[in-house]
Amino acid sequence: MTVKPISRLGAAFAFAVLLSACDMGVVVYEPGVYKGDPDPIASQQAAAERSDALADRAGSAFADR
């Protein structure tokens, strides 16, 4: 008997910890979904470009006729 019970206990525990990562909710890596961080300048530009169109749309959609 060369393996101490405490080492086995440790190994069993480490295994259990690793096993719990197999939960369906765990997403460690999904191929092909990487995207960079949201770009504040691009966001600014997009918001500026659409703001007129959206304001017009609100005027025509919600005003009482």
């Binding site: 703001s51 169109a53 959206l54 304001a55 749309r57 609100a58 005027g59 959609a61 919600f62 005003a63």
Partner: peptide, 28 residues
């Protein structure tokens, strides 16, 4: 991205739900 507002507000029959720029809808 298509220049349209949220669907819930756009199709609201009584125009109760307003969505868009805060100043514009507050004015309406």
């Amino acid at each position: 991205a298509e220049g349209k507002l949220p669907l819930c507000a756009e199709m609201c029959a009584t125009k109760a739900l307003l969505a868009g720029d805060g100043d514009v809808i507050a004015n309406i």
